[in-house]
Structure formats: C-alpha cells, structure tokens
Design a protein around this nucleic acid. Structure first.
Length: 869
RNA sequence: GCGGACGUGGUGGAACUGGUAUACACAGCAGACUUAAAAUCUGCCGCCGCAAGGCAUACGGGUUCAAGUCCCGUCGUCCGCACCA
C-alpha cells in the first residue's frame, strides 16, 4: 500500500461521491450550533471556470472546512450571477438563445466546480436568471417603490452605442463603457433610480464599524461617497445675464479664503454658460472644446487650464466695492456642488494656474506660520495648508477653522433677494443608482405604463413578470421593446390599453441581495426573516478587489433598503471581507501573436530560459508576467490541471507561497512541487500506518525525543490555526512543510521506543487533520489508511495541548553591542541575575569584554540578552 | 496632479506589539540509489574572505542597548481616482 503512488483521480472522485451520498455539506437552518457564513463572490457563467475561481474558492473552502471542524454550523453556498450582456452577445453572434447559452454554461461550470471537491451546500444553488429568484427581486422592487426608494426621473444618461444600453456613472471608465469599451454618448432618457443617496451619511459612518474589511476598500468607499462640508453662497450679478438670474450660486469648502477671490468660474455645462453660448458662437465653440477633453482625472490634470470671459460681473458678498469677473472654465464640473465656484488663486493650485494664464489677481489670505505678512507671496505653488488669516478685514488673525465659521455666520445673517446669502451645506459625491437597462437578459422591471394612469405597479397576483422566450436578436436594441404580445397589456387599474416597462434591471441589482436569498433559497418571500437574521451578516466574504466599490456599496444599500421594507434585520451584509490577488502567468509571443502556455516548452541552456513551440521547436519570446486573460492567451485551464495532478494539488499550489491578497504566478514548477508534496505525504503516512498500529498505547514515560516531536506537532497546530483565522494560507502551508520535514526525520531516526511510536502516530494523525481544509481528498485517503472508518470531513479539529507550547528551557540569543555573538540555554524560570551571570561566563562575551566590566546588560525575558561594552 | 500601498537571496516569500534577518518553497549545485533515466533520499546554496571576521532588508540620514520594523529625506514599483471647489 505505502509504496503505491497516490492516485488522485481515483481517490478524489471516490471521496466526492461519498461526501455527496452522505450529504455532509448540506446545511440545516434549524441546527442549533453557532453559525458561520462563508461566501465567495458567485461567478458569472461565462463558459468555463478559470484559475482565479480556483484560488477564490479554495480559500473559501479552507475557511468553511476549518470552521466546520471547529463545531460551527457552516453555511457555504454557491450560485450564478447569470443575467448580463455576454449571453446576448452570444445570442447575436451564434444564434443561441441567451437562456440556453447561460444554463449550458452553468452545467459545465457546475461540473468543473464539483471536481474541485468544495464543501458546498449544492442544495441551495440558484441562478439569478431563475424565475424563482427574479420573481422575488421584482417583489423587492415594488416594495422599494412603495417605500419611495425607487423612482423615475428624466436624466442625461451615458449611452453605450455598442451595447445599446445605459451605463451608470460608475460604469463609465475614461469616457468608455466599462464592458464594451465603446465611446459613451450623452442622451436624455427617463430612467429608474434607487435612492442610494438617502443613505449617504449612514453608508459613510457605518464604514467605521467594518473593522474586518481591508483598510484600502474602506478608504475607497469613503472617497466614493465623498462627503464635504462647505457653504453655498450667492453672488449678486452687477448686470443679470440674458437668462435672467439675479445671483450666481456657488459651493465652496474654503469660505475662509473669500477675500482672496479674484474671479468666478462656471462649468461649461452650467445653465448660464449654455444660455450665453446660444448667443455667442465663440463661447459655444469653447464649450464644445471643453466637452471633448477626456473625463479621466489624469487627462484633465495634465490638460491646460482654459477659460472664457463671459463679460459678466458679480459683487463680492463681504465687500460691495469689489467686482469679480465670471469665466467659463474647463476644470469645473457640473455634477458637483452647484457647478460654479469662486476662485482663490493663492490657495488653490487649479485657480492659481488659471489666474497666471489670464493675468488675474493673486491675493494671499492665509499666512503660513513663521511668514511675514509684508513679504509673503505666492509663486507658482498655491498654499493650501493651515495658517493665520490676513488681508481679510474682520477675519484677520483668525485660524482657518474660525474664519470658515465666521464667514458662514455673517453671510447667513446677510440677505440677498429676500433669502440668506449663504447656507451651510454638506455635499456628497454619491449619486442615485440608475438601474434601467435597455436589454433583454435581465430582471424585468415590474411596472406598466398607462396613458391615463401613468406608472402602475404590476399587481402582486400577476407576478412574476416573466421574460418571454420567443425573442429575436436580428436587430440591435432591446427585443422586449419590439415584442408583439409581451409588451402590450391591459392597464391593471383602468383596463385600458397600456404597455409594459421594457427596461430590465442592472445586473448589480441581482448580486446585491443573493447572499440573503441563500439563507432560505426556496422561500415564497424574498427572505425568511428568521433565517436571514440568524445567518447574516456573512462572516467571511471573499472575492476580487475589482468589486471594492460598486458591488459592495450596492449590497450595503440593499441591506438597508431591505431592512426598511421589512425583509431583513441587519444593515451590514458582510462582516468580514477579504480581497484576493489575481492569478498571473508568463506571456509568450511568436511572430503570429500570443501563444498559449500549453503550446510552449521551456528549455534551459547555459542557465538561461528559452521557450520553443512544442509543435516544431521554433523559438518563442518570453514576455512579461500578466494577469491570466484570454486576450493574451496566458491562461491555464483548471480542468486540465485537475485531470493531470488532481484537485488537491491545484488547491494546495493556489494557497502556497504568495500571500493571498497579492498576485500569485502560476508556474509549471510550482504545480509539480505541490504534486510532489502530495505524494510525499501519502508515502509518509503509509509508512507510519504500517509501522505504528492504530492502538499504540501511550506509555507513562514518553522519552525526550518523543516529547520534542509532540511539541513540534502541537506548535504547528497552534500556529496553523492562527494562520487560517487570519487567512494567511501561505504561512499555514509553510508550517505543514516544516512538520512533514520534522516528522520524516523522526521516522528516519529509527527510534522504536513505545513513546516514539505514540508521538509519530499522533503527528501523522494531526498532520492529516490539519491538511484536510486545504487538501481534503488526500487527507481523507490518509485518514482511512491510518485505520479510521469515520469521515474526516465531519471530524473535529484536533485538540491542542497547551502545556506542549511551553519549553522547559529556553535558548536566548546573546548580543554584544547589538550583534549576535552566542546562544544561551537557561531554564525557563531562570532569574535575571542567573541569566546575567551565565551571559558573562560565555566565551564570546568575556572575549569581547577583555577583562573590563560591562556597561550594561539588557535582559528581555524569553527574548534576548544584550551586553553593552 | 492627488490619495494609498509597497521595496528583504537567482525567484515566490517568512520575521507576532522594535529583540537571532533570510523560515518554508521554487530554481540551481554536489552526492547516494539505478545498466540508464525518472522518481526518491542526503548535503550545499545572500555577498566578500583561506580564515578570523566583515558587509548585507532600494538609497542617505536620525532615534534606540537593539531598526526589515519607528522618524525625516531621496529614488523606484504598483494600485485607486472624482479638476470635488
């Protein structure tokens, strides 16, 4: 038995069948044990799983199996984020129905996931395109609508001309659609929105409670919500513009610098700019030019600041004798604040660049500490720091904070056109979430448009609004919009002729509550409150950093909205979040373009790696290491790897070496190393099983060597448990390698004492149990070789003997002047005086002292000794 | 431009709250076993040096008995971004 190679293919299939037959991973809501909900971001059924999935799900499975062994009732479900455009693209390109395409992909990918041996509760599986799921989503929509959380408004939208759909602001990247890459156009459409901005403050504040989220993601969410406190101020026009406004409203976060104002800036999209542009062709041309600049921060930062003097003038609110010119400027956004600013060049870099270009006044009003007010000047760099206000009449001598408050108070009391001239305001960058998509393969928005009754929600008894199957993709645009019978219905209110809403929901809606549905996936309501509240929040959520903002923020919104509509009791869906790194691979190029690793053979000549084509031996250029992608052909198919080496090898390799939050490079050497280790463990356990019978008794006196081995075993258990808790899988892997090294040596030493037998047996059993979360099939096989008849998948985590973590003697490094010179072994309870004496007796120390007394001896208990000479 | 993270052998990386730098793995080298290869096993593997020893955690300073870890500056890499007034 022991000499046989471990046959992963045979063993993995066998254990998977046994686990499934016995239903060991099916979770019951009524199980009284403490709950643990671990969830990996569910996949889009694109066709085949990729290595990124393997890494993601291997991590989640380690946590699930570890927590299960610790006695938790673990929920570890899987489903499919199944609506979305690729299905429609496939329909257009290959004449496949999106539904067939999607469900076929799901079947393939489910099979691929199953051979990974993940401890998933497949009985809870669903796809977001299942009628059962989106029917509940429609009910949520109607509840949100009734609660005022969903509404319609006409708005300028980002129109993707390739996908023929609307994109959220967040989905437009550098002026292009995030999926299609097409240049986005502006269009006016009536759209459905979710009122996420109602929760701006709460979503922001609650970030503080998410202490098991990466700081990076929390920061990104804070910045996305973008809270800023400031003042809305009205500036009176000297002569009103043709559009008739009496005053210009601006928003500022620096009212303290108001006396440094030298001009006003309008966004090119500001209504006043527009109105003026209609009469001024030169301004119209300028506005058009501004709209052509890219929307990316980098493009605009490097773009030259430009403006156009409108000829309008406004009066300074604190000194009526000052008149300020009004420019249309290319660096002011309509979407933030009021789309207009007052500019203080001395204390804002953009304003300064602009003022220098157009020869406008630069008056410093904040004096940095240590500067002389008579000589302080601003060169090419604006001063944005703190200081004392000067050149500012009644504010002179105040701090920045005091001045902000003073200006606000004064202008609030002052009135212009019968209203206070200023108003304190909190602004958020976060805007409402537009969810309408002009697309077939999504969840239908359950409303009916009636010419007499306007928008009528589909009555509950008529739900769900099913997607019709008989559709065609011969023309671009939404097939629902031209569906003959589906679209035309009677109005539920008046019975007259009416039309269905033909827009479907953004697929981010689907993924915003699936974690809640998993808690009771077959319920006739969206959630079962008891089940949802018992399971949520998700204890550990694992997925890619690319979802750091949108998906996570929308899910947080949904939890709040579902609470408001009575579907949930919690507001934060994910207690712990972990964002894993990507899987990368070397790239290869031949003259024909990118070459797949499967077609390349690596040879080493004179210590230099060369790549050649397997087919004909022709040379291939080795390129940079990149994220695995179809476009660069540097992918490795998980199924191929699993067929060759087994799922455990693939899982082990994905968990070893690289810290999980960082990228990991897939290499053939690495996989083989992992595979060799699987074989090594198998041989080692086999040998031990032969040598030490299962009922090896524990003798009263174990002997020193056996105690040492036991220490190593239990120390490994202690450290590895901590590593898994922290998701430091690479460290956990290293500890198991160490234990195997130690155990191999102990076995090779040939000590046949009864104590050693006991210690070796224990080490082997612990090793196998510790490996189980990562390499579950191999562990089951080893467990059975060791004579166990129960399943390791349902066994408890091994018990830790705390006593073994503490040594009787400790070895202290001894430093002389901070450099290590010797080791000192002393009893654990040795006193400081004993240690000092023993230190001075060391050869290395006395040599360094050369007869002189030491200046100082520092003893850090159980850490180190440092002798200062 | 702004914000953030990071920089350790040939490579991926360890090093808990300042306390033995380089654990573990990959690659490489030498040897054992073998007719041979594969597999396996053993040993070596930061740099200089015969050695004693010295030098090394991007670079330059600083704090400390002690710095990969803390502080200041420089260089470099990566990530995020919204000209946010």
């Amino acid at each position: 038995m022991a000499s046989e190679r471990y046959n992963a293919r045979e063993a993995e299939a066998r254990w998977q069948e046994i686990w499934e037959d016995k239903g060991v991973f099916v979770t019951h809501n009524e199980d009284p044990r403490p709950k643990y909900y671990v969830l990996e971001m569910f996949p889009y059924p694109s066709g085949r799983i990729h290595m990124g999935h393997v890494r993601n799900y291997a991590m989640g499975d380690v946590v699930a199996r570890y927590k299960r062994a610790q006695g938790f009732n673990v929920l570890h479900p899987m489903g499919w984020d199944a609506f979305g455009m690729p299905a429609e693209n496939a329909a257009m390109q290959n004449k496949v129905h999106p539904k067939d395409w999607t469900y076929q992909n799901i079947a393939t990918m489910r099979g691929q996931l199953k051979i990974m041996g993940l401890s998933l509760d497949w009985s809870r599986e669903f796809a977001t395109c299942d009628v059962d799921y989106y029917a509940q989503q429609q009910r949520l929509f109607l509840d949100f609508l009734a609660a005022g959380l969903a509404y319609r408004k006409k708005s300028k939208v980002n129109w993707d001309p390739v996908d023929m759909t609307v994109l959220a602001n967040e989905q437009v990247i550098d002026g292009r659609g995030w999926r299609s890459g097409a240049l986005v156009e502006q269009r006016d459409l009536t759209q459905w929105f979710f009122r996420i901005s109602d929760f701006s403050e709460d979503l922001l504040e609650a970030i503080d409670t998410l202490d098991r989220w990466p700081d990076k993601v929390r920061l990104m969410q804070r910045n996305w919500i973008g809270r800023s406190e400031g003042l809305k101020v009205s500036f009176e026009f000297i002569a009103p513009p043709p559009s008739g406004e009496a005053a210009l409203e601006i928003f500022t976060t620096r009212p303290d610098t108001l006396f440094g104002a030298s001009f006003m800036g309008l966004s090119p999209d500001h209504p006043i700019s527009r109105a003026l542009g209609e009469k001024d062709p030169k301004l119209a041309a300028f506005i058009e030019e501004c709209q052509k600049i890219g929307t990316s921060a980098e493009a605009i930062e490097t773009a030259e600041k430009k403006g156009y003097d409108t000829g309008l003038r406004v009066r300074h609110p604190l000194d009526p004798s000052i008149e300020l010119p009004v420019y249309v400027a290319n660096f002011i956004l309509m979407g933030y604040g009021t789309g207009a600013i007052f500019a203080c060049p001395a204390h804002d870099q953009r304003d300064l660049d602009f003022a220098r270009k157009y020869g406008l006044k630069v008056t410093p009003v904040v004096l940095p500490q240590g500067e002389d007010p008579a000589t302080f000047n601003v060169g090419d760099e604006a001063y944005t720091g703190d200081g004392t206000i000067f050149n500012s009449a009644f504010m002179d001598g105040m701090s920045v904070a005091e001045a902000k408050d003073a200006v606000a108070s004064r202008l609030e009391a002052q009135s212009l056109g019968g209203k206070p001239q200023a108003e304190r305001q909190v602004n958020y960058r976060l805007r409402d979430w537009g969810i309408s998509r002009q697309r077939y393969w999504g969840c239908p928005i359950p409303v009916i448009h009636c010419p007499t009754c306007d928008v009528v929600p589909v009555p509950a008894e008529d739900l769900p609004v099913r997607l019709p199957d008989d559709i065609d993709f011969d023309k671009p645009g939404n097939p629902l919009d031209r569906h003959a019978t589906w679209k035309h219905v009677a109005c539920p209110k008046c019975g007259g002729k009416a039309e269905r809403e033909t827009d479907t929901m953004d697929t981010f809606v689907d993924s915003s509550w699936y974690f809640a549905r998993f808690t009771d996936p077959k319920n006739a309501n969206p959630t079962d409150r008891e089940a949802a509240d018992a399971w949520l929040p998700v204890d550990q959520y694992i997925g890619g950093i690319e979802h750091a903002i949108l998906h996570l923020l929308y899910s947080r919104f949904f939890a709040r909205a579902m609470k408001k509509t009575g579907h949930l009791g919690v507001i934060e869906p994910f207690q712990g979040l972990f964002t894993q790194g990507m899987v990368t691979h070397e790239t290869y190029r031949a003259d024909g373009g990118w070459v797949s690793p499967a077609d390349v053979r690596i040879e080493e000549r004179d210590g230099v790696r060369h790549a050649v084509l397997v087919a004909d031996g022709s040379p291939v250029t080795i390129g940079s290491i990149e994220k695995m992608s179809k476009s660069k052909k540097n992918t490795v198919d998980p199924t191929d790897i699993i067929e060759t080496y087994g799922a455990d090898t693939a899982r082990w390799f994905m968990l070893s070496d690289s810290p999980p939050e960082r990228d990991v490079e897939w290499t053939e050497d690495g996989v083989q190393g992992a595979w060799r280790f699987m074989q090594r463990v198998w041989r080692l356990v086999g040998e031990i099983a032969e040598r030490v019978s299962r009922d090896a008794a524990r003798p009263n006196d174990l002997g020193e060597a056996a105690v040492e081995l036991r220490r190593a075993t239990h120390k490994t258990l202690h450290a590895l448990s901590n590593d898994i808790e922290q998701l430091a899988f690479n460290r956990a892997v290293a500890r198991l390698y160490e234990l195997v090294n130690t155990l191999s040596k102990a076995l090779a030493a040939g000590d046949r004492a009864a104590g050693m037998d006991f210690a070796i047996r224990e080490a082997a059993e612990y090793l196998v149990r510790m490996m189980a979360p990562m390499t579950p099939h191999l562990a089951e096989s080893c467990w059975s070789v060791l004579g166990h008849e129960d399943l390791l998948a349902t066994a408890a985590w091994p018990a830790l003997e705390q006593d073994l973590l503490v040594e009787d003697t400790i070895t202290l490094p001894v430093q002389v002047n901070g450099k290590k010179r010797a080791d000192l072994t002393v009893p654990r309870e040795a006193s400081k005086e004993d240690i000092e004496a023993a230190t001075l007796a060391l050869d290395a120390v006395s040599r360094a002292l050369d007869g002189k007394p030491p200046r100082k001896i520092i003893v850090v208990p159980s850490r180190i000794v440092n002798v200062v000479v």
